[in-house]
Design a protein around this nucleic acid. Structure first.
Lengths: 345, 345
DNA sequence: GTGAAAGCGCTAACAT
DNA sequence: ATGTTAGCGCTTTCAC
């Protein structure tokens, strides 16, 4: 069923029907009611292609998901983020388009998307310090919101981020308060902005207490089980092993746990672990549940916020850049306890 | 840059340029070369809306992601599946459109998508036994491939699935071979087809050895950390606790591990755990890595296969339904070992 | 081998 | 308050 047919059935012009359906004021209420009910009855939906051709708006938002060329790993928090954003799009009649690109030719992907003009805006995932995509998108003039920050260009662009530095500073402080002095940081690649900030938070907490930074206790690798395992194992095998771990992702944490088990240690008794669930900085338990891995609801919230911000920008362009810095919850589970007696190097 | 401008610059008609770009044979090679190079130079991309309007094809595939209304949880394997499918789409000039829907009005979402006609085909995720969506899509006539099976309508539709039953039968057999007699199954909701098959495999293995099925050792709940924790804790607290666990997902396994740690047990020494990473039936370690949680590369492969099958169906409709039953790898890690001496109930 | 013209389904001036 | 008309950018007869 298309406009032509529908309007023929109603004995009206396409124009009137279109206006009635799109909420234009010059249509009489009676006609509008009649049109709306007919549209419902015939299950009429405007053809999106035709609509976008006529209006110049596509009513679609693009998400570019970089996929590692070296590992078969996709950051699982994308799923939650997407869920949050998708909710907002659905509510506002927008479509979500996903483009999966090998992480070595993202640039090309963005150009492609922009040239095709199949979206009204873009969400940028996983920004790196001084990210070239920002320049590219600004040049092109395509509205965008960055999920995370780029360190250097943040004044001029729209972004939503979590206070990663503070989150890790607080987490480190908690462990320090418990008496831990050797805390192993199992971080993601510090070419990623969020990972860099996390290390800064960790270091700042240690430095504030006059503790030396031990490079042996700081790993920065891909957030995979294997990397987490290797890093934790290496640290545990050292002459002065850590009494606590601060893991930067739920995935590498799996490796950390395995290394701990391999070493014959019991978490929460011999050693503490705080897991940061995702790149949004939440460390949260279900309050009444002694589960120490984090919920990921926060990522979903971030997805929603990014999407809302972007739609707002599209609706009202030319505003000043807006920034949302979310504060991360930090709820420790049972696996974080006092430092083992006598241990701690 | 659009067709009109491009053809004007070339001094050719839109027709010729369009033909040249779309590989029609009646264009002279000289012209084609000239057109192609100009298109490249001016970074020309056909407007997808206009193209779809003219051809009736949208060059887009829809994925509907059901999101739990009760839990803030999105199955993280979606990310990997999407990555695999996205690869295929990119290679073939297709777009991927995601629709996130609360899991209580999926039906409506499918109708909506079909009516709007904004996709050429659909991938159905998370099928349930006797899934109504199959009937719906068949009626509508929209090509689709199901990731998983529906138990009852599988003869007539296209699907890609993993042999879940066999995977769990084998996993159970491995544990039985190690001497385990009480194996706790922490399964997902058995209203999902894959979960149902998994239990069947588990039961079949036990029955083949004449072992009684103990309902206390079979949990079937949402695949969340909390559920996994509760189930494992309950089983461990029982008079005759399990000596091994078979967990149906990486998420609920996190809860299982926590329960084990809480009980003062050490995995791989006091108790064995086999984790099934996703709804594709792979239980695999990196061969040289003693990490016992699974890689998820398999899901990505399934995403690729689903997408390829769907594009094939779209290109050549009216074929007989095709079914891909992938065989799951099963590689045990160190956490699965002999039953603890004297234990085993 | 190339071009002119119609039309895909819709919106938006411009009438009336 | 409703209708007429042109046009969004492309493909596709049909003519030459």
């Amino acid at each position: 069923m298309n406009l032509k047919e529908l309007s023929a059935r109603l004995g009206l012009s396409q124009t009137t029907v279109s206006r009635a359906l799109n909420g234009y004021p010059e249509v009489s209420e009676a006609t509008r009611k009649r049109v709306e009910s007919a549209a419902r009855r015939y299950d009429y939906r405007p053809n999106p292609g035709a609509k976008s051709l006529a209006t110049g708006k596509t009513m679609a938002i693009g998400h570019v998901i970089p996929v590692s060329t070296r590992h078969e790993i996709v950051n699982p928090v994308f799923a939650d983020f997407i869920a949050g954003a998708g909710e907002v799009y659905a509510r506002n009649g927008y479509d979500m388009r996903l483009t999966v690109v090998p992480d070595d030719d993202e640039d090309h992907a963005y150009r492609e998307i922009a040239a095709r003009g199949s979206v009204d805006g873009i969400i940028v995932h996983g920004p790196r310090p001084d990210d070239p995509r920002v320049k590219l998108l600004t040049e092109i003039g395509l509205p965008f919101v960055v999920h995370g920050r780029t360190s250097t260009q943040d004044e001029t662009i729209n972004w939503v981020d979590v206070n990663n530095r503070r989150a890790f500073e607080r987490a480190t402080n908690f462990l320090l308060d418990f008496g831990h002095r050797r805390i192993g940081l199992v971080n993601g690649l510090e070419t990623m902005d969020f990972a860099m900030r996390r290390r800064q938070g960790y270091c700042r907490a240690l430095e504030a207490r006059g503790l030396a930074l031990d490079p042996e206790l700081m790993a920065a690798e891909e957030m995979t089980e294997t990397s987490g395992y290797r890093a934790a194992r290496r640290m545990l095998a050292a002459p002065a092993p850590p009494t606590a771990f601060l893991a930067s992702s739920i995935i590498s944490a799996a490796g950390v746990r395995r290394a701990i088990t391999d070493a014959g240690l019991v978490m929460g008794r011999d050693i503490s672990v705080v897991i940061h669930d995702d790149d949004l900085g939440y460390m949260k338990n279900g309050e009444d549940e002694p589960i120490y891995t984090a919920t990921r609801s926060s990522v979903r919230a971030a997805g929603r916020l990014c999407a809302e911000l972007l739609l707002d920008i599209i609706a009202e362009p030319g505003q000043n850049p807006r920034h949302l810095l979310l504060d991360a919850d930090l709820v420790l589970g049972r696996s974080t306890g006092p430092a083992p007696g006598g241990a701690g190097g």
